[in-house]
Amino acid sequence: MTTVSDIENMIARVGIGDRNAFSALYDATSAKLFGVCLRILNNRADAEEALQEVFVRIWQKASSYSANGYSPMTWLITLARNLAIDKLRARKAPTTDIDDVPDLRDQGPTPEAAAIASSERAQIDTCLNELDDGHADAVRGAYLNGDSYQELADRFDVPINTMRTWLRRSLLKLKECLSR
């Protein structure tokens, strides 16, 4: 059974580069420190890697350890815990490049554009109502429904050139109305 003073002694000897003391410290504490890493990382491979890094740090920092009334296991566990938490933070939430974020903006019209379009639509409806009924229906058919001149001429029972004249004159009246 390894005592607190045994662990303090091993840490002190590791601080002066004693490889045998380092091996003994590993044998005495690695199971406990591995448990700390495993509990935090919840992944055996990551915990084994973290434990290896913990012992590298112990080798590097053992000379700075001083027995100040705290348990040497507290110092070792703190090293293991902090390193495991650092590894956990590093594997969580990788940053995303701003260019990889999809465009989340609303692709529809802005409220201002919608209001303007609504106002323009109301103005066009008002101007269409000023035309003769047949002429307004012909304009709607040609420019909103995509009807051909021939289809409109057949529907209104007029020659095709008359239909073209209706549409041309109706568009001039609409232009005049919309410019007021």
Rank of each mutant, 00 (worst) to 15 (best):
W59G: 02
G108C: 13
D106S: 15
P72R: 00
S64P: 04
A80P: 02
A67W: 06
D99G: 09
L76H: 00
I77Y: 09
K92W: 07
D97S: 15
L83N: 14
A115D: 08
R89D: 00
S66L: 14
P109D: 11
S66Y: 07
Y70C: 13
A67S: 13
T78V: 03
S118H: 07
R91G: 03
D99M: 15
D106N: 12
P102Q: 07
L83Q: 13
T74L: 02
D97Y: 08
K61M: 09
L83R: 15
L88F: 10
K87F: 05
S63N: 03
I98N: 06
L88C: 04
L104I: 06
S118W: 09
P111M: 08
A62V: 02
G108D: 09
D100Q: 09
T74F: 01
T74H: 12
A114V: 15
A113S: 13
N82S: 09
T110G: 06
L76Y: 00
P102W: 05
L76E: 00
P109A: 12
N68Y: 01
K61L: 11
Q60S: 04
K92M: 12
A93I: 11
W75C: 00
K92S: 11
I85A: 01
R121N: 08
I98K: 15
L104G: 04
D97T: 08
A62T: 02
T74Y: 10
S118P: 08
I85W: 03
P109M: 12
I85C: 01
S71I: 08
G108T: 13
I85D: 01
K61T: 10
V101G: 05
D86S: 11
A117Q: 10
D100G: 11
A80C: 05
G108E: 10
Q60A: 11
L104D: 07
G69C: 01
P102M: 04
M73P: 02
A84D: 02
A90I: 06
D103E: 15
L76P: 02
A80Q: 03
G108F: 08
R91P: 03
E120M: 13
S71Y: 10
Q107C: 13
I116F: 04
P111F: 04
A114T: 07
S64Q: 15
D86A: 09
G108N: 14
G108S: 12
R81E: 04
G69R: 03
I98F: 08
I77L: 15
P72W: 01
R91V: 01
A80M: 04
I98W: 04
S66K: 14
I77Q: 15
